[in-house]
Structure formats: C-alpha cells, structure tokens
C-alpha cells in the first residue's frame, strides 16, 4: 500500500515508489517535446532558417572603431540629415554602424537584395540595435564588434531604435536605413556631397 503525505509534513520513511500510469505517460510525452525543441533550435533552424544568430564577434578599441567608422563615412557619404551623415556603401561591402549617446551613425542607403556585412559597435556605453518595423534586435557593446550579414529583401524606410537604456537622452536615439529598389538605390554611388 502506497502512503502519501501532505507537502507540509515529512513523507513516510520509505517514499520512493514506482511511477503510476499518469506520470509515466506525461513524463514520456514531455521528454519527447523537450528534446524536439532542442533539436529544432540547435539543428533544424540552423539548417533551414533565414534568420540566424550565428554572427562572428570581435574585440576592438572603441576609439579605433570610431576611426574606422569615420573613414567609412568619408569614403561613401552622399548626404546628411540633421547633421548625421548619410552613407551609400557599395553593394556587398562592409558597413560600419556605431552607436554613441544619443545617435546611430551613419544613416545608411542600401540596395534591396544585396548582402552587407554590418560591423556594429559602440563608442561609449551599451546600446540596443532594434530594427523596425521588422523588429529584430541586437545588443551593442563598447569594445566588441558584432559582424552580422544582413540582406534587405524589401525596399523601404527602416528605423533603428536604441532599446538599451543608455542615459537621459536614450529615448531620442534613433537611426535610419533607407533601402532602395534593386538597381536604383545607388544612382548616387560614389558621388560625394
């Protein structure tokens, strides 16, 4: 005869008993589900998904990253909005994107269907890269570079919101990416302001 006890009192001296039918069934089903979720995340999606989080990371001195970003802006700047440089990088190239209190620099003009390697970091404190309206998000750390390959498949205006608290002007920290239709966006390629 199996003895059971309230959770507030000590169980009987010998409380290890075999599982009943209910528990065996539930344990089997949920163990299978747990493994299925793991296989999905670690093996299936990496094989079939188009949105991966496997980007390469690097260390960098924030001042060095600032220098690289400025050089990138110098090379490809086409315009400026509210004092923030607008840059049209060559399709398929590297893109430097730097967070600093309280802006993302530069504003980017990209071409639909082209793949860009984004090198993202921060000059000062931690920031959050939140690309809207698609709503995908990355943490941005000073001293670290996230090298993320991004391909915009649809043209349009995208905003980058900072979604990591970075100081009193955090809610005014916004960047932008304009994606032009294939073959048209970069009519100004190579043109300096």
């Amino acid at each position: 005869m199996i003895e059971r006890s309230s959770t507030l009192v000590a169980p009987p001296a010998r409380w290890w008993t075999p599982l009943g039918r209910d528990e065996r069934m539930w344990l089997t089903v949920t163990a299978v589900w747990a493994l299925a979720m793991f296989v999905m995340m670690q093996l299936v999606w990496p094989a079939i998904g188009e949105q991966q989080v496997t980007f390469q990371s690097y260390r960098v001195d924030p001042l060095e990253f600032n220098r690289l970003t400025e050089a990138f802006i110098q090379a490809h700047q086409v315009d400026a909005i509210d004092g923030v440089p607008v840059v049209a990088p060559p399709p398929g190239g590297d893109v430097y994107l730097m967070g600093q209190r309280f802006q993302f620099k530069p504003i980017l003009r990209l071409e639909q269907g082209q793949t860009y390697r984004f090198l993202v970091s921060s000059l000062d404190v931690q920031h959050g890269l939140s690309l809207q309206p698609d709503n995908f998000n990355f943490q941005v750390l000073p001293g670290y570079v996230s090298a993320i390959s991004l391909t915009p498949r649809e043209s349009g205006v995208y905003h980058i919101l900072c979604n990591e608290y970075c100081g009193p002007g955090h809610h005014r920290m916004v960047g932008r990416i304009d994606v032009g239709a294939a073959g048209q966006a970069l009519s100004s390629e190579g043109v300096r302001p």
Partner: peptide
C-alpha cells in the same frame, strides 16, 4: 513564434 521569426523580411546570418 518560429513562423513570426521567418516573417522578418531581412536575411540575417
């Protein structure tokens, strides 16, 4: 949720 992720129009690698 996986479907929502797949609806992101950008390819991310």
């Amino acid at each position: 949720s996986w479907y929502n992720l797949s609806r992101v129009t950008w390819i991310i690698r």
